[in-house]
Simulated assay, not measured.
Amino acid sequence: MAIANRKVIAKMPLDSHNPIQQPLQALPLTPREHDVLRELAQGNSNKTIAKTLSISTYTVDGYVKDIFRKLGVRNRSMAAVVAFHHGMLEMASPVKHTTQARANL
């Protein structure tokens, strides 16, 4: 099992010249696991993910464990890195954040 984990991590382009998202081979996840990973990678708690996807927190816990196992990662941060490198997250423009912050004042 440890060997498989190394292969997944070795394929992640963390040291590439282009730090922007690089689509790799498809992740071995179900569509619902993709939804959970996307929410997780945005920093949402399991409780928030459950509310957003209209499922129980226990179901989210199960999905998170399955995602970690399938991706060969140990924590939410590592899962977020995989999601980013597979193009699952959009890069937020600093201008958008500044404009939104001013609008909220």
Rank of each mutant, 00 (worst) to 15 (best):
M1T: 12
A2S: 12
I3Y: 15
A4F: 09
A4Y: 13
R6P: 08
V8R: 12
I9N: 11
A10T: 07
K11Y: 12
M12R: 07
M12T: 06
M12Y: 04
L14A: 06
D15Q: 13
I20G: 09
A26L: 03
A26T: 00
A26M: 03
L27V: 02
T30V: 06
E33L: 01
V36E: 04
V36A: 05
L37N: 01
R38I: 10
E39I: 08
A41Y: 02
N44A: 13
S45W: 09
N46E: 13
N46D: 11
K47S: 10
T48R: 14
A50D: 04
T52M: 13
L53I: 03
S54K: 15
Y58V: 10
T59S: 10
V60P: 00
D61N: 12
G62H: 02
Y63D: 01
Y63H: 03
V64Y: 01
I67G: 02
F68T: 01
L71F: 01
L71S: 01
R74E: 10
N75K: 11
S77N: 15
V82N: 00
F84V: 06
H86R: 00
L89K: 02
S93N: 08
V95K: 09
T98H: 14
Q100P: 11
A103R: 15
A103C: 11
N104S: 14
N104M: 12
